[in-house]
Each structure stands twice: as C-alpha cells, then as structure tokens.
Amino acid sequence: MPKVLILFAHPALERSRVNQVLIQGVGDIPNVHFHDLYQHYPDFYVDVQHEQELLLMHDIIIWQHPLYWYSVPPLLKQWIDLTLEHGWAYGSKGVYLKGKRVLNVITAGGGHAAYEAGGYNGFTMHDFLRPLEQTAKLCGMEYLPPYLIHGTHRIDQAGAEKARKDYHTFLRALGAGEVDPEELKPLYYANDHRILNPVK
C-alpha cells in the first residue's frame, strides 16, 4: 500500500472555515499521515532531519495549502528551501526522493474560470504551479496534476462538507492503492478522476 504524507501549510487556519472542515479527521484515514507545518514550526525553524525522515517513509507527498498570491504560503517555501537539500534531494548524490509522487492540494478563492487562459488571473493554475512542478522533477519525483477546491470565498457549509467528503474519498483511495497515479497523469485536475466522477 502506498503511504501518503500530507504537508499542510496554513498560517491562519483559525480563520479558514473550508480548510478546517477539509482536514477534519484526515489523520484517521489508513496510510495517510497528516503533518501540520505551521503547528510544528511557528517560528519557521524547520527541523530538516525530521522532515527528510518523514519524506523517506512515504511514497506520495501532498502539499496542501491555500493559494496565496499565486504561490505557496511562506513556511512551505521555507520548508522546500531547507528540506530539499542539494546532495540529498537533488544533485549527483541526491537520490533519496527518486520515484516518489507529489501533488498539490489547493484551496483557491476564485472559481475555475478565473484560472483559465485569458481569465481574471491571466494564467492557468498549471502555469502558476510550474516552479513546483520543476522542483519535483529536479528531485526525480513525478509531479501529478493538482487537486483543486475552487471558489472557497463563496462556498457554504454544505459545499465545504461536500468538498471534505470528496477529498477524503480521494485520500482513502490513494492510501488503499485504489487510485493508480498513472491514471491521474493525463487529467487536468486530480479531482477529475473517475472515483469522484462515477459514469452515469
């Protein structure tokens, strides 16, 4: 069974209704380890050794975060800067992450249409995620399409609960090996996978 590591980065979780709902009980899903970065490193003092050990123990890495200014929150960037060391994560001796899969799980205030070419934000979600995609590739990891929860500015309680249900279904399937990462690759978003969209 593939082991899933969620690296969760939200600097103000207490103000994010949707993220609070999304992560509720997420650590109870079999084979899924939930790691709350802002709870562990409020002072940005990332324990590199501990983080590297965690990475080694898992097969699928999830960066879960809100989209801030078309990018990750600062602690996640700090985490990338410090954890993905040359000679460990990349470079001729940096072989430890090879073959692992990584994807982003993103909450975005704007809707799907706002992230289309020529839309309100000018670029697609994939365009904004290019740096992460290349980061993964440099480390020899497979970068999978992102899992998107769009329109969180307007989402109501029922919508949040639905998002949570879908997300957890997805995670449970990932942890149980029921979702083949190969099947995700051609998709636009990971949540387009058939497990969340059964054929009528």
Partner: peptide, 8 residues
C-alpha cells in the same frame, strides 16, 4: 550552520 544547509 547545519540546519539551513539548503541555503548553502
């Protein structure tokens, strides 16, 4: 400083 080797 070993802990921020990533900036090295």
């Amino acid at each position: 400083y070993p802990r921020d080797y990533g900036w090295d």
